[in-house]
Design a protein around this nucleic acid. Sequence first.
DNA 1: GACGTACTGGAGAGCGCTCTCCGACAGCGA
DNA 2: TCGCTGTCGGAGAGCGCTCTCCAGTACGTC
Lengths: 342, 342
Amino acid sequence: MSAPPTLEDVARAAGVSRATVSRVINGIRNVDLAIQEKVKQAIALTGYVPNQAARSLVTRRTGTIALIVSGAGGSQESPFPGHVFADPFFGRVAGGVVGFLRPLGIYPILMFADTPETRDQVIAYLRQGNVDGAILVSISTEDTLPKLLADASLPAVLFARPARPIPISYVDVGHRAGGKLAADHLVARGCRRLATISGPLDVPASQDRLAGFQEAMAVHGHPYIPCAEGNFTLPSGEVAMERLLAEHPDIDGVFAANDLMAQGALLVLRQHGRSVPGDVAMVGFDDSSAALACRPPLTTVRHPVEDMAAEMGRLLLTHIEHPDHPVTSRIFEPTLVIRESA
Amino acid sequence: MSAPPTLEDVARAAGVSRATVSRVINGIRNVDLAIQEKVKQAIALTGYVPNQAARSLVTRRTGTIALIVSGAGGSQESPFPGHVFADPFFGRVAGGVVGFLRPLGIYPILMFADTPETRDQVIAYLRQGNVDGAILVSISTEDTLPKLLADASLPAVLFARPARPIPISYVDVGHRAGGKLAADHLVARGCRRLATISGPLDVPASQDRLAGFQEAMAVHGHPYIPCAEGNFTLPSGEVAMERLLAEHPDIDGVFAANDLMAQGALLVLRQHGRSVPGDVAMVGFDDSSAALACRPPLTTVRHPVEDMAAEMGRLLLTHIEHPDHPVTSRIFEPTLVIRESA
DNA sequence: GACGTACTGGAGAGCGCTCTCCGACAGCGA
DNA sequence: TCGCTGTCGGAGAGCGCTCTCCAGTACGTC
């Protein structure tokens, strides 16, 4: 296999200089149409493809960004990261990011930072200038990566508001509004003895969903709402529902802070012979694929994850393009998707 | 912000030449220990990080590989790819690949090729020399990407044997053996009227799982096995089970070609008031997170996806390192994971 | 006809790194 | 003392591209 053609080869084939070929390729300045045509033919003839490394070297742009899932490492450790994809949520983020970036010829590098040392590896990698920016989905509140990113002044966008204020752009959904949506719907359909399964209470999103639900219920005249804390996994939803049922056997409506926990709760309800939505109504959160896998299909608060991911891409590109662009946040409105469970 | 330090800066700080610094960084040849120490201090002092683009330009190595999910685009199209992650399988592949590559400082670029034009984009991107090699998870039989990859003589490894023979390395699981495992277990636990829910029959993996099951059943004296075809999604499992039940109401054991379809089948069985495993025993395939989300937890054929993904990484690295390495395939043995459903 | 202006294409200087020479020097046997 | 071998560090040539100059040409104006 001979060496791949370079700009020089194309230039020679077209009888012009390297600079002209470069101009044609990058569509810069006016180049005579006849010459453009000649160059294009030469490119086709030689099968030329620009060398990205050489280009990056001078433009200081790589055309890639990092998609980092950080602070994972839940209870069941494994040598392999990526069990985070057990929650459909992450697949949706990845899909949304790729969907937006792909038409632009930009692809994300997939990284997991689930331990302190992998976090250092990630930082080191980013500092090598391998990427133009980063999109970060942080799971844990303890995660220091957002801070490190902000300090490194690398263009970056977060999914979800950071627990502590950090000068970094982010995109989030109106968790409070979502909790209210669930409360209003449950009350409207006649539920009177409500309970909720929250996410981990050190996560802002969990706090807000819970607060939104509680506040709306208070307005409806229910100041006290039983609450069991889960960790966004299906089994934790089962455990929580089991506890709720033991302590409050007469429950007739439940708001679970995500679909996976709702799915677990549904399983337990069925085991106890409670019909859904007849005896107990259930509302989830996310509108993930799990909502459709539930029986009955889950009424849930839609989290427009794909749109949010696309917005992250857009925002990141802006930051890359304009390094002085101010830190920005964008909140998306949730909506209620009514199915059969409530 | 001033320009980041270069080799030159470090060299000056250490009072040596660029070449020596480079040697220290890459650990090549004998450099006097005292000088090594001086250089290391200078690196720390200046906060130097090598520029990957410049390095790639001369080494012709990028240190990144592509992780391509190809031939997606199932029935329900969306502007966003990545709903493939609705099947936990892909998350496991991604996790396995990252888990193996990460310690080596290599990260995968995530790409989806779900339409002809995105496939062309992917090929164009690969040809730009953005990556050293590719790992490809191809879903559809019609997918031409494996062939294109082989033709481009870019180092590549496939997940699963291609439908048509192509000179390209791959890693796969013993689907036939898996089908046999399921058959033997079901028969051993006393099932006599068995049926199966297969995957799409144009996919080699589906064919093999089915064939393995049928052959083993024939050995056990059951030459004819009712079969309903699904497409590896949960709803398709429901539809298939519904059909099977209608045509063969006395079924007492089912082998589903993946866990998601088994989950759907379980749902239908319960709707029809059949207890599992009392009335009907169920065996799935994959041992994915869905198996644990089933009620009862699913007995399933374990598909060692993470190990296979790691092996793909290893194999790809070998191909990158040694361009003349012969095309190789590696088949992993499935095992049976016994839970409660059978 | 001299000059200014606009536009086009070429020359050439790097971008930051690696790696092949090659020279300097120490050690050692003859 | 000479020369040979072996070790270690420096010089410098690129890798393939972009982009800033600058020269050449065509055209309009006074």
